[in-house]
Amino acid sequence: MLRDAAAREGVPVNALVARIDEERIRAEVPPGLAGAIRLWLVAHAPAPDG
């Protein structure tokens, strides 16, 4: 899922993780990085074909 998301964003996986990490550390109560990645993937998942 992370590789697919990076491809959709047009960036390498490590760049996407760095972007997610930057957002994570700005949070009032930052989650762990793995949790932040999971949350980001859910929030940015492509809409299902309906």
Rank of each mutant, 00 (worst) to 15 (best):
G50N: 07
I25P: 06
R38H: 12
P30N: 02
D49S: 04
L41T: 00
W40V: 01
A27G: 05
A43K: 04
A45Y: 04
D21M: 01
V17P: 11
R8W: 03
R3M: 09
I25G: 03
R8I: 02
P48L: 09
H44V: 02
R8P: 10
D49M: 00
A43Q: 13
D49L: 04
I25S: 07
R8T: 04
E23P: 03
L39R: 04
M1E: 15
A6I: 13
E22W: 06
D4Y: 07
A47E: 15
V17T: 14
E22G: 12
V29W: 07
L41P: 01
M1N: 12
V11F: 08
P12Q: 03
P46L: 05
A5S: 09
G35T: 13
A45F: 05
G50A: 08
A45W: 05
L41F: 01
A45Q: 12
M1Y: 12
W40N: 02
R3A: 15
H44Y: 03
A45E: 15
E28I: 08
R19L: 12
P31N: 01
A15M: 06
A43R: 06
L16Q: 09
V42L: 10
A47I: 11
V13Q: 04
V11G: 08
L2H: 09
L16P: 14
L16D: 14
V42D: 01
P31W: 01
A45S: 12
G35D: 15
R38P: 11
P46C: 03
A36I: 08
G50Y: 11
V17N: 03
L39N: 06
L2C: 13
A5V: 05
G32S: 14
